[in-house]
Amino acid sequence: MSDLIGSSGRILSEAGTAVLRALAGAIIPASTEHGVPGADDEAIFTDVLASAGPILAFIGEHLGLLDELAGDGGFLGADAARQVALAEGFRQAQPEAAALIVSLICQSYYRDPRVLESLGTPARPPFPEGYDIDDGDWSLLDPVRARDPFFRPVN
């Protein structure tokens, strides 16, 4: 078992947490162009850990592969571009664990108010305000209205 895993085998060690956070930042980095934090942002990553529940242990069991792929210096010692490449290698080697990690990260990242606002999406739950949807151009239906009934006769 990787030394990234805590002795209980159920929670991430401090080192494992650091690797997962760096991995989150490699998958979704901060962008000054779009004015958004990365997924390794303090608030977002705290949400990732809080949301992970029991699958965190499963994830932890696989994170050691990143260090194995990285070789000397480990994943944390790699530069940003190299970390992205290592993350891709991780996804190829451990697709199930990678899918869980990506899912966790995206679930927290794309509900962060700063991220939603950068997308022009209101940073609030759908309920109770809801959203406005245009009724639409019902003249589009004119050619269909002109059709004769075409359901199949049975007699």
Binding site: I28, R91, V102
Partner: peptide, 20 residues
């Protein structure tokens, strides 16, 4: 927003890294 990211990444339309 979340499903857009997940389906896009699963389909390889959204990469890891700065291109995300």
């Amino acid at each position: 927003p979340v499903m857009t990211a997940l389906t896009g990444m699963h389909a390889g339309r959204i990469p890891f890294g700065t291109g995300h």
